[in-house]
Amino acid sequence: MRFPRRGRELPEPVSPGTVAAEARAVRVRLGARDVLDGVDAGVRAGEVLALVGPNGAGKSSLLGALAGDLVCAAGEVRIGGRAVGEWGAAELALRRAVLPQAATLAFPFPVAEVVRMGRAPWAGTGCEEQDEEAVAGAMAATEVGALAGRPFPALSGGERARVALARVLAQRAPLLLLDEPTAALDLRHQELVLRLCRERAAAGDAVVVVLHDLGLAAAYADRVAVLDGGRIVADGPPGEVLRGELLSAVYRQPVEVLPHPRGGAPLVVPVRDRAEGT
């Protein structure tokens, strides 16, 4: 992807706690259905916000709206204190990096080139000199350095997911929007991805991540927003939001929430009926 080299307003450093992106009374329609209905949500610099909820709840739609990739039928989305529509494509790419659910490419680019694509928004700026460092650092963080010369389509699903995340990290935008980044990953790499989210937040970035694993959300997120039917039904610290009664109703599956024996983070366990003696 190419971006115009002139006329770009580069992002300025922000203090922890500054609102990086917010949705105000947002309604999004896909076809004849409202997938988001009057949603208010926001994420601040230095924070990891996890979006959780059942399939079809509106998690990916909210992420897409916060990215400026979905048009709102009503309400407003703001990034960096400005309505998302006021940013040009090049300026928006400097401010937010998006990881979609599926990572696909039409051509067999080698892995290193795929990661380097994340640096495209910085071409022609003073930060272009950081390209090599950013690419190498992102590949090391996601453990894909050994794959550098391999064609992207030849990778496994989990490898492609980590390469796509490396591209997002190399972009070095202050707002990261990640849609189910752990879906194709094994246990080790799921933990790796969420640790990276925490590291980016500690460095001052704002991170929004869609997750299905409530244990990961409880362990790594500063805040959890629970969506159901296109609305946010709870939003707050994991220990306050991840409650058995609420989750059982939202997921239409009985669950119980137990404190982790180390640290006390909520553990969400499905209630299962087992035949006696099995």
Results as ranks from 00 to 15, higher is better:
residue 87 W to V: 04
residue 141 A to S: 04
residue 92 L to A: 10
residue 158 G to E: 07
residue 163 V to G: 03
residue 114 V to G: 04
residue 91 E to N: 02
residue 235 D to W: 14
residue 148 A to E: 12
residue 149 G to C: 10
residue 5 R to G: 14
residue 45 A to S: 11
residue 51 L to E: 01
residue 21 A to T: 02
residue 33 R to N: 08
residue 19 V to D: 10
residue 98 V to G: 01
residue 11 P to H: 06
residue 76 E to A: 08
residue 18 T to W: 09
residue 139 M to W: 03
residue 25 A to Y: 14
residue 160 R to L: 02
residue 211 L to A: 12
residue 107 F to A: 03
residue 219 A to P: 01
residue 120 A to I: 02
residue 122 W to P: 01
residue 56 G to Y: 13
residue 10 L to E: 12
residue 266 P to T: 12
residue 238 P to M: 07
residue 87 W to M: 07
residue 133 E to L: 07
residue 122 W to H: 05
residue 204 G to Q: 06
residue 13 P to W: 10
residue 129 E to Y: 13
residue 235 D to N: 08
residue 251 Y to F: 09
residue 154 A to I: 08
residue 7 G to K: 01
residue 262 R to D: 14
residue 35 V to E: 15
residue 166 A to Y: 01
residue 166 A to P: 00
residue 257 V to L: 05
residue 228 D to R: 15
residue 150 R to S: 11
residue 85 G to S: 02
residue 235 D to E: 07
residue 126 G to R: 09
residue 50 A to P: 02
residue 168 V to A: 07
residue 157 G to E: 03
residue 159 E to C: 00
residue 19 V to H: 14
residue 218 A to F: 09
residue 89 A to Y: 09
residue 260 H to K: 09
residue 98 V to F: 05
residue 193 V to A: 04
residue 81 G to V: 11
residue 31 G to E: 07
residue 183 A to G: 06
residue 196 L to Q: 02
residue 214 L to W: 10
